[in-house]
Amino acid sequence: MFSALRAALRDLSTGDLGLYRVSMPRGLLDGTLPAKAIEGLGFEATPAWLTLHFSEQAVREAVGASALKLVASRLPEGNVRDLIEQHAIDESRHQKIFRRLSELHGGCDLHEDSTEMTVREEETLAVINHADFHFPNFIVDTHISEVNSLCHLTFIRGELIKSGADDAVRKAISSLISDEKYHVLYTARMCVHFLKRNSAHKSYVARSTKYFFEGSI
């Protein structure tokens, strides 16, 4: 299991970790998919690249926050709703951090009213409002997306440390990584819960992983 994911899951019980291991695709666990994701990132420690990347992340976080907030609003009161609502709050904070990181490297190219933002929101709403919306699948998608983000952020922080990036930038990314580790952990626990109840299926986990790590289904 690749190191960033292993660190995020360190608080899973032995039994839950065992079920997680046999349910997640091998490529996710052995690090081959994260390695491909990093390669596809095309990282460059240049202001132009960092500006665009952080801007894109700000848009994704804003859309994610809206999606989580909408899903939470449809859940009954309780721990699960509280977790999803807190996740939405975290994503809103992340959006602000990414915008600031983009501005520090030259300016934000994408904004909340951008075409990309509109398209992403429409696609997300279409999924959430679809008659076949399945909450366990939403949690699987959220989990895999958070693993992907954790992979990218961990790599970027390492590369920025090598390039001598400003302490404030490194600290900001470290704070994002800390949140992502928790998001990975709590969604992993929920995924395991749904797998135990047969509400989530390994075939969907594989499909979701392929989408988030390879960009296709």
Rank of each mutant, 00 (worst) to 15 (best):
E77C: 01
N79S: 14
V80G: 00
R81Y: 05
L83H: 04
L83M: 14
E85S: 12
A88Q: 02
D90M: 07
E91M: 01
S92M: 06
H94P: 01
I97Y: 00
R99M: 02
R100C: 01
R100D: 06
L101I: 09
S102F: 02
E103W: 08
E103K: 10
H105E: 11
G106I: 10
G106Y: 10
L110C: 00
L110M: 08
E112C: 02
T115A: 13
E116V: 12
M117Y: 01
M117A: 14
E122Q: 14
E123Y: 01
E123N: 12
T124N: 04
L125Q: 11
V127F: 10
V127R: 08
V127C: 01
I128C: 05
N129E: 14
N129Y: 04
N129D: 12
H130I: 01
A131E: 14
A131Y: 01
F133T: 03
F135V: 01
F135E: 06
F135S: 06
P136Q: 07
N137H: 14
I139F: 10
I139K: 05
V140W: 00
H143M: 15
I144A: 09
V147Y: 09
C151A: 09
I156T: 14
R157M: 13
R157L: 15
R157Y: 03
R157N: 13
G158T: 13
I161T: 14
I161V: 15
K162R: 15
S163P: 07
A168F: 11
R170P: 00
I173N: 04
L176K: 08
E180M: 10
Y182M: 09
V184K: 11
Y186C: 08
Y186A: 02
T187S: 15
T187C: 05
T187Y: 01
A188P: 08
A188V: 04
V192K: 00
V192E: 03
F194P: 05
K196R: 15
R197M: 07
